[in-house]
Simulated scan of single mutants.
Amino acid sequence: MEAENIKPWLFRVQPYEGESLSHFLGRFRRANDLTPTGLGKATGLGGAIARWEKFRLNPPPSQQHLEALAKVVGVDAEKLEQMLPPPGMGMKMEPIRLCAVCYIESPCHKIDWQFKVTQGCDRHKLSLLSECPNCGARFKVPALWMDAWCQRCFTPFVDMAKCQKHY
């Protein structure tokens, strides 16, 4: 299906400041009841969407890829590029990390949390969480974060903030 054929029917999702592409793609897909495959077909990017949601950015999205995605999601390609690590910046694909205090302030996964050089939350001077402090489950990829809670025990991210340690 051509992107232009479905474009008028898509709900727009505004990106948050510092949001990771994984989280944004998940929010966009849920708002429009799309699977990664469905969004891949609409954009002409195929399986790239599913890879990007898992931080598998090798090779990184090209300008052409970002422009194709931008046409469908209604977000400027430059803004999409800001949701990716800067060129040369190493990424941790796992574990997925979270600053619960940041999430309370702005409910999104921040791309900065996955940088290899990131040791903690620079804004709050707190360690990042990589698993639920209640049950020990590792966090799912941000594209799957729907309800801001642990997907195993349902502990809200808000309640996890008290478990973060200062550094």
Score class of each variant (00 low, 15 high):
V73N: 01
C108P: 04
G18L: 12
M93H: 09
G18K: 07
A68N: 04
N5M: 07
A42T: 05
G18C: 02
F154P: 07
Y103P: 10
A42K: 11
M89G: 04
V13L: 07
L45S: 01
P87M: 10
I111S: 09
D33S: 10
L129Q: 10
D159L: 14
P8R: 07
L21D: 09
L10V: 01
I104S: 11
A3R: 06
N134R: 15
S130T: 12
A77Y: 01
P86S: 12
L45N: 04
N134S: 15
M89N: 08
D147Y: 14
Q82N: 14
P156L: 09
A31Y: 05
M1E: 08
P107I: 00
E53Q: 10
T43A: 02
E4V: 09
N58S: 15
D122Y: 07
A137E: 15
G90I: 04
R56H: 12
M91P: 08
S127P: 00
L128P: 03
K7R: 13
P86K: 11
W149N: 15
D147S: 15
I104P: 09
Q14V: 09
P156H: 14
L98K: 05
T43E: 03
K110V: 06
R27F: 02
K71D: 13
L45V: 00
P95D: 06
H23F: 14
Y16G: 07
L57M: 08
G136H: 10
F28C: 02
E81C: 08
M146C: 10
A48P: 05
L98D: 01
F55S: 13
G136P: 03
H124R: 00
V117H: 13
C153I: 03
R123H: 03
I104G: 10
G88I: 07
G18T: 05
A137F: 08
N58H: 12
M83V: 04
E78T: 10
A148H: 15
Y167P: 15
I96S: 11
G46Q: 11
L126W: 04
G46H: 12
E53S: 09
F55V: 07
H109M: 08
L66S: 01
L128H: 02
G26D: 07
K71V: 08
P87I: 10
T118Q: 00
A143G: 02
S127L: 12
R12C: 06
H65S: 05
E2C: 02
Q82I: 01
N134I: 12
M93K: 14
F55W: 13
L25N: 02
P133T: 10
P86E: 13
A68Q: 04
R12F: 09
R27P: 00
Q114R: 08
H166A: 14
I49L: 06
K110S: 12
E78Y: 08
A70R: 03
A48E: 15
A68K: 04
E53R: 07
H65I: 00
V158T: 14
G44V: 04
K140T: 14
P142W: 05
V117K: 15
Q164G: 00
N5W: 05
S22A: 07
C132I: 08
W149V: 12
L126C: 05
G46F: 10
C102A: 02
